[in-house]
Computed example of a mutant assay.
Amino acid sequence: MNLTEHYNQLYIKSSEVILEGNYKLDTQINNASDSRFGITLLIRPNEKIKANIQLFLDELKAIEPHQYYYPDPDIHITVMSIISCYEGFTLDKINIPEYIDVIQQSLVHLDQITIEFRGVTASPSAFMIQGFPTDESLHNFRDKLRENFKKSTLEQSIDSRYTIATAHTTVMRFQEKLVNPKELIATAAQFRDYDFGEFQVENLELVYNDWYQREKNTIRLANFII
């Protein structure tokens, strides 16, 4: 996949949708009874990058203060959604050590992963920071995870919603009607090529999480040093 082209097309289409007022609101963010949970293998960017992301979010907050903004602890890149969030999923339904074993098998030949965060893109319901792996390491690791989980008998829903190929991080979601969509898009446009920083991935986390990866609802199941 050409990530630059993918992010560009997503931004162009989504910004048009937002300006036309056809964006989508996330109605579940403040639903205390939301029971959608799953398990995810993820990467967290370093503190410097998260600080740069918050500078961008501060600009958006000044225009649209009532939307949902990701706090530092929740910012992440999804490596693989192993069990996509669904209502009623709990950890007692799975054998966690077996999942850890499959991931460790997949890590054997993993090369160093380096990711550059540059620019922003959008969807009809959110803003994301664009992530660019500097080589094929992340792509190859995902393929190895797919292969090894497919060979197992473990519950998994890898690629059931879509085949993950990007390295973006979602940082803002629409939860209320936009007040200033034109100003919002104009501000996002100023960050289209902004350099948020580059980092070398030092560890991966396996977590039990809600739909929004909120820290208060997250249980860390394993940490993999790479």
Rank of each mutant, 00 (worst) to 15 (best):
Y68H: 01
A51C: 02
D143G: 10
S137Y: 00
E16Y: 14
E16P: 00
T4L: 11
D34N: 14
A222F: 08
F117Q: 07
Q112K: 15
P73G: 00
I29R: 15
A222H: 13
H76M: 08
V179M: 03
P97K: 10
I49P: 00
F191M: 07
K13I: 06
I185Q: 04
H168L: 04
I83G: 11
S15Q: 06
T170N: 06
Y23H: 00
Y68W: 09
K144I: 10
A165R: 13
N2Q: 11
N217G: 04
S35F: 01
N95E: 14
L154M: 05
I18W: 09
I96V: 12
L10Y: 10
L178P: 05
D34Y: 04
K182I: 12
I164L: 14
D34F: 04
D72R: 06
D74A: 06
Y69G: 05
D210S: 09
L41D: 09
H76S: 04
Q67T: 09
E136A: 08
Q105F: 05
F199C: 08
T4V: 08
N95P: 07
F196R: 05
S152T: 00
T166V: 10
H109K: 12
G197A: 00
I53K: 02
R36Q: 11
Y69C: 02
E147K: 07
L19K: 09
Q175H: 03
F117S: 02
T114A: 04
S84F: 08
V79I: 14
L110V: 06
H109L: 11
F224Q: 07
L107R: 05
Y11I: 01
N30L: 11
C85P: 02
N209V: 14
D26F: 02
A186Q: 14
A189E: 15
I29F: 15
V17K: 09
A186F: 12
H76L: 11
R192I: 14
L55E: 02
H76F: 11
N203D: 12
D193P: 08
K50D: 04
Q105H: 15
N2C: 10
Q112D: 14
T169I: 03
D210W: 00
N2T: 12
E59L: 07
Y194L: 08
I113C: 13
K182V: 10
L3A: 08
S15I: 08
V201M: 00
I219C: 11
L42V: 03
I103W: 03
N22D: 15
D34P: 12
